[in-house]
């Protein structure tokens, strides 16, 4: 398969993703109507229900049109980047989201780097020291992390490193890169610990399998350096299953961010969503849900493309023996 083949592959994946996104958008739109009570009431929120306001809402949301027409009118606005107006504060949903996005992206990226970096290193340590106390400690740490929810680990970290030791701030997102990283270390760690077990387990199992392979033995028999064997042979082959799971992990991190933001009172998208749910702010819920869904679809698309790029057996297609 050549460069154009890769393009064809990506296009084909996109073609599958578009209908999926349409279905999701339909579900998100239907939220207004699924929510208990009259949609006008839902959209009214805390405003006074005088007839003029109600009529304005009916007019603004095309509520007198048939359902499908409403959907298409809403969708065409969404495509143009207009997610409607938040019921609270009367701001455009897009600008509320834009305000909050930074913290969530920073938190998720930081924790993804921690999960993948630390997880792969710990998994590799376990595999190389298979059966030793260190190996068992690594596995135990993973099991411990996955069994305690992120908000519990978060509260523990806050108490220990924030309140007792005062190493890290206990609330607020910080400003500027370094200050923000300092502020977000504990939340990112809490988030990372809760999903790291998956990466540790996959890396460890894959590396143990790789260490037993004929080509690793053959590489040793040829006197290659242990660094070359570890990186070009063992790690590179073992990372293929990790990459295939990375999509799942990133999605897990972003959904975990919702709890962690609330725990650490960070003004991120997760906190915004919780807030919106509590206040029945339907346009904001629609906006954040849609954004999360698009993100999940795109992450999966990216995983497929990366998987194809790193495994030549997929890229070239197997020859028939």
């Amino acid at each position: 398969m050549t460069g154009s083949g890769v393009v064809v592959f990506v296009m084909r994946r996109f073609a599958v993703a578009v209908p999926l996104l349409l279905i999701i958008s339909f579900g998100v739109f239907a939220l207004v109507h699924i929510a208990p009570g009259d949609p006008v009431r839902s959209l009214l929120g805390a405003r006074a229900s005088d007839p003029a306001t109600l009529a304005a809402i009916r007019e603004h949301y095309h509520l007198d049109d048939p359902f499908l027409i409403q959907y298409f009118k809403w969708l065409s606005k969404v495509v143009q980047g207009d997610l409607g107006v938040s019921i609270l504060g009367n701001r455009a949903v897009t600008s509320t989201i834009a305000d909050r996005l930074g913290v969530t992206i920073f938190l998720s990226l930081m924790s993804a780097v921690l999960v993948l970096g630390l997880g792969v290193v710990l998994g590799a340590v376990g595999a190389f020291r298979r059966g030793t106390r260190l190996d068992r400690a690594v596995v135990m740490f993973g099991v411990f992390g996955i069994s305690s929810p992120a908000f519990v680990t978060g509260i523990f970290l806050l108490y220990f490193f924030g309140a007792l030791l005062h190493w890290f701030p206990i609330f607020g997102p910080g400003t500027g890169f370094l200050n923000r990283a300092w502020h977000l270390t504990l939340p990112a760690l809490a988030l990372a610990i809760s999903v790291m077990a998956i990466v540790i387990k996959i890396t460890r199992a894959a590396m143990i399998e790789e260490l037993d392979r004929d080509y690793v033995t053959f590489a040793r028999a040829r006197g290659l350096s242990s660094r070359r064997i570890t990186f070009a042979y063992v790690l590179r082959n073992a990372l293929i299953p990790v990459v295939t799971a990375a999509g799942l992990i990133v999605v897990g991190i972003v959904s975990g961010a919702i709890y962690v933001e609330v725990t650490f009172s960070l003004p991120g998208l997760g906190a915004l969503t919780i807030d919106a749910v509590q206040k029945r702010d339907i346009p904001t819920i629609q906006g954040t849900t849609l954004l999360f869904s698009v993100f999940v679809v795109l992450v999966n698309l990216a995983t497929d493309v990366i998987y194809m790029l790193i495994d030549p057996r997929i890229r070239f297609g197997r020859v028939e023996s």
Binding site: R213, D214, F218, A219, R220, A221, R222, G223, S226, D311
Partner: peptide, 23 residues
């Protein structure tokens, strides 16, 4: 041993399909 292997003693194994790094 790594200075001996490859330079003085080398080894060839049975299964040609699993002896080479697939990547």
């Amino acid at each position: 041993l790594r200075k001996i292997r490859g330079f003085r003693v080398s080894m060839l194994m049975q299964d040609p399909f699993t002896m080479l790094n697939p990547l």
